[in-house]
Amino acid sequence: MRVREVFATRAALLGFVGLFFGVFAPFAIAVALRSLRNIHRAQEGIVLTGEGSAAFGLFAGIVGTITLVGGVALWLVSAL
């Protein structure tokens, strides 16, 4: 049976938004990791789909978080 993992879409959405509003990016990582864990630990006979969405959320979350931290650090270095 193929079922879509419930957090996968949420991870992708948070990852996407996190690239435009960095504060969402860390949440994308957390939700994506949870989604991927669920997918890989699915019960026998059940195939959880949504790995692509979760992976997108994870990568986007990582990039967004790095950008957020790096951007703020750069601002502080420039401003202070």
């Binding site: 690239l19 435009f20 950008t67």
Partner: peptide, 25 residues
Amino acid sequence: RPTLVRIPAVLLVVLISAISYPGAV
């Protein structure tokens, strides 16, 4: 399978990053 799934995800992230905050930074 995981690799095949993740490559498009990474490419999509790179594409969106280029036009959003990462690209701007």
